[in-house]
Amino acid sequence: MSRTVLVTDSTASLPPEVTEARGIVVVPLQVVIGATSYDEGVGGATPALVAEALREFRPVSTSRPAPEVVRAVYEQVAAGGATEIVSVHLSGDMSGTFESAQLAARDAPVPVHTVDTRQVGIAAGFAVLAAADVLDAGGGAAEAADAARARAAGTTSLFYVDTLEYLRRGGRIGAAAALLGGALAVKPLLTISEGRVASLEKVRTAGRALARLEELAVAAAGERPVDVGVAHLAADERAAQLAERLGARLVDNLEGRDILCGEVGAVLGAHVGPGMLAVCVSPTPA
Rank of each mutant, 00 (worst) to 15 (best):
L216Y: 03
N253L: 04
A206L: 04
E237Y: 09
A219F: 01
V230Y: 04
Q241E: 15
Q241V: 13
P188I: 07
L216G: 08
L210Q: 13
A266V: 03
P225L: 07
V197I: 15
E214D: 08
D227C: 02
G195I: 09
G247I: 01
R249S: 12
R249P: 03
A217Y: 03
A235R: 07
R204L: 14
L216H: 09
S193T: 12
C261K: 03
G229E: 01
I192N: 01
E194L: 05
T191R: 15
H232R: 01
E214M: 05
L246C: 06
E255L: 13
L200D: 07
V218E: 12
C261P: 09
A240K: 06
E255Y: 10
G195P: 11
S199N: 14
P225V: 09
A235S: 12
R257I: 01
H232P: 03
A235Q: 03
E263T: 13
P188F: 06
I259Q: 04
L254T: 09
A220W: 08
V203D: 00
T205Y: 07
T205L: 06
G229L: 08
R224I: 05
R249C: 01
R249I: 02
A217W: 01
E237S: 14
L213E: 04
S199T: 12
V264I: 15
D227P: 01
R238V: 05
E214N: 02
R245C: 04
A211L: 12
A235Y: 01
L190W: 04
E244Q: 14
A221G: 08
S199Q: 13
L233V: 14
R224V: 00
E201A: 14
G229M: 05
P225W: 11
L216F: 11
C261Q: 10
R224D: 14
A209V: 03
L190Y: 10
G262A: 11
E215Q: 15
D252W: 00
L189A: 10
A266G: 09
E263G: 06
A221C: 06
S199F: 02
E215M: 03
